[in-house]
Design a protein around this nucleic acid. Structure first.
Ligand SMILES: [Mn+2]
Ligand SMILES: [Mn+2]
Ligand SMILES: [Zn+2]
Ligand SMILES: [Zn+2]
Lengths: 142, 142
DNA sequence: ACTGTAAATGTAATAATTACAAATAAAATT
DNA sequence: AATTTTATTTGTAATTATTACATTTACAGT
């Protein structure tokens, strides 16, 4: 999806949910498009130069409200939460050494759920988490 | 596996790694066999009556060292880490409403990884995380 | 029993996140 | 365009989970 178009979609979704389109929200969306699974701290530090008046609390508030609106996803692997746009479904690889989190395209993994699972759970999302060593960390042990 | 036998296996594994078999470690292993994905806090509270001299720090220390020894697994979904014995591989369901974490038997899900993934990563573990609503929370929205 | 040292303990410190009250500014209404 | 409403931002303080550290205890080898 083209970036400007995606921003429009996000703005629309915010309005749908009765939220307000603020420069802080739009700015954070733009940062999420640039950084790879950033933490709240990483987002804040990245924005400080261009946006010195931004409050760290606003970063948390915004990430939380955008998450509630279904606009982004939150992952709580590592010690700090990491965020990304909720666009497409995909899987993740977690490096046990450096803590890195890499996207794995949906097409690279096939998952089949036994149909009896849906009798016990209302499943909204299926995601595979691979753990191991990334290319940078290979050949050094854990 | 029979429980006493499992304890023996754990003791053996601790010794293999050059660790010491302490009553705290054995007690915490026993708690992990009773509780379902407990947090450090839940383990500590569960043990306080029978073991009033136990330190909360020891719970953390023990969970950490047993994890390092490969005896248990740590999951950092929710705000606090949750722990379980590392016996068999299985998958998990996370309820978006109550935060509950349920085991899904390995046999209920089949996962196929594209072979080209192993050219980029050294994959040690594959786990599926299902998100949705558990039976208790169904029919109440998110 | 003696001894070396890993582990346990208690307290203090840190890191991530949240709570709260006051100030600001979207956006609806006039 | 001015006014109004109230969601959001901001700064600070509080909370929660976890870790650091110095001291004491006790596992396990001799
Ligand atoms: Mn991703
Ligand atoms: Mn489990
Ligand atoms: Zn790595
Ligand atoms: Zn539930």
């Amino acid at each position: 999806m083209k970036k400007d178009n995606l921003i429009d979609v996000v703005m629309e979704k915010i309005k749908e949910k009765g939220g307000r389109v603020t420069i802080q929200r739009l700015a954070i969306i733009n940062v999420l498009l640039k950084l790879d699974h950033p933490t709240a701290e990483e987002i804040y530090q990245f924005m400080r130069n261009e946006f010195p008046t931004l409050s760290f609390t606003t970063v948390y508030n915004t990430l939380h409200s955008l998450h509630e609106m279904g606009i982004l996803r939150e992952y709580r692997f590592g010690e700090a939460s990491r965020f990304e746009m909720a666009e497409t479904n995909h899987h993740h690889f977690l490096c046990q050494k450096c803590g890195g989190m890499k996207d794995i395209e949906d097409s690279n993994i096939t998952v089949h759920l036994d149909e009896k699972l849906s009798r016990h759970y209302h499943i909204l999302n299926t995601e595979v988490v691979l753990k191991g060593l990334c290319q940078d960390c290979m050949g050094e042990g854990i």
